[in-house]
């Protein structure tokens, strides 16, 4: 890990660890769940260049599976979350195998269509509770000892889950595997001619992203005690795109920042009803037109420009 990154992450983690003193923990857990979801999405768009417009299928399906496992089968919380994550990974294998056959714009359309298929499945399947969803999912003690009915305690568990997912993604994108992914993003034909089996790399990245989106969804189901059709609907896929776009696609911290911005916005604007949709749309349009690098991306770029200027200044001084 780069030294700068270690400092940044430590600072962010320290901030997240003290935040429950100031902010309602349930809200923070929501931010972290969506941040993990956005990080998973960002792995695909930022490092493989694949825009998935159907990530809600992993998020929502995992929420259903973990909710059902915990509530109906009476599984322990950790087993339920793992079951949701596993189910999302399996779904990722199936959806990924189909979707990676097309690139670019078609990939977005294919993932959107596949997610809609999962939506209709969840709407009709008996185990999801149809329009009602799965409600009143119990919060059983984690590992049999940690009492997660207390929101503050549960917050630190969710923070641990987020940190795990975040560091896993960080590790992956800085591994040789991640380098190959970036090579595919930059120039796929060249990566193929270098002998990489591009489809396998893409599929593996897709499954990893699906599994982590599932981890986020499963955790969210336990936190809010509910899994519903909202979680699998296409609007949810759009929201995760928006979070990542606002925070900065292809930046490590962007999804966290974007999730915090969008979730807080939704919280404050909830009473305005349909205007939330309009405002979200307006943010989409503004970000695409004026702020394509996202919040974190713009900050990084500003620092880079400053460093460049300073580099020039010192070079002149040396003359």
């Amino acid at each position: 890990m780069k030294r700068n990154d270690v400092f940044t992450f430590a600072a962010v983690l320290a901030l997240l660890a003290v935040l429950p003193a100031a902010i309602y923990p349930l809200f923070l857990m929501k931010v972290l769940c969506f941040a993990l979801f956005a990080c998973a999405f960002n792995l695909l768009i930022g490092y493989v260049g694949l825009l998935s417009f159907g990530h809600a299928m992993f998020f929502g399906f995992a929420a259903y599976v973990s909710g059902h496992a915990v509530k109906v089968w009476g599984w322990p919380t950790e087993a339920g979350i793992l079951a949701g994550t596993g189910a999302a990974a399996l779904l990722g294998v199936a959806a990924g195998a189909i979707a990676i056959r097309r690139q670019g714009i078609y990939f977005a359309m294919v993932t959107l269509a596949l997610a809609q298929m999962v939506f209709f499945y969840c709407h009709q399947a008996p185990f999801t509770g149809g329009e009602d969803g799965i409600q009143a999912i119990p919060r059983r003690p984690l590992l049999g000892v940690i009492d997660i009915t207390n929101d503050t305690v549960f917050y630190y568990v969710v923070l641990a889950i987020f940190t795990f997912g975040f560091l896993l993604i960080y590790r992956v994108i800085h591994s040789p595997f991640g380098q190959v992914l970036k090579a595919i993003r930059e120039n796929e034909p060249r990566a193929i001619s270098l002998g990489y089996r591009v489809d396998r790399y893409k599929l593996l990245a897709f499954v990893l992203s699906a599994a982590l989106a599932g981890l986020a969804g499963a955790t969210k189901a336990i936190v809010f005690k509910i899994a519903s059709l909202t979680d699998v609907a296409w609007q949810m896929s759009g929201e995760v795109v928006l979070m990542t776009l606002v925070g900065g696609m292809g930046t490590v911290l962007g999804p966290l920042v974007g999730a915090a911005v969008i979730v807080s916005m939704q919280n404050y604007l909830a009473r305005f009803g349909e205007w939330v949709l309009v405002i979200q749309g307006a943010i989409f349009v503004t970000t695409v037109l004026l702020l394509r690098r996202g919040i974190v991306g713009e900050i990084v770029a500003a620092f880079a420009r400053r460093a460049l200027r300073r580099g020039k200044d010192t070079a002149q001084d040396a003359d």
């Binding site: 417009f53 795109v241 776009l245 939330v276 309009v278 979200q280 943010i283 989409f284 695409v288």
Partner: peptide, 28 residues
């Protein structure tokens, strides 16, 4: 017209945002 020099994906994202605005206004 401001996006033609960019990746196609930005056009998709922009029109998605426009769709949300239009749909939200009509629902409102």
């Amino acid at each position: 017209s401001r996006l033609y020099h960019l990746d196609h994906l930005y056009g998709l994202l922009l029109t998605f945002g426009l769709a949300l605005i239009i749909e939200g206004l009509f629902r409102q």
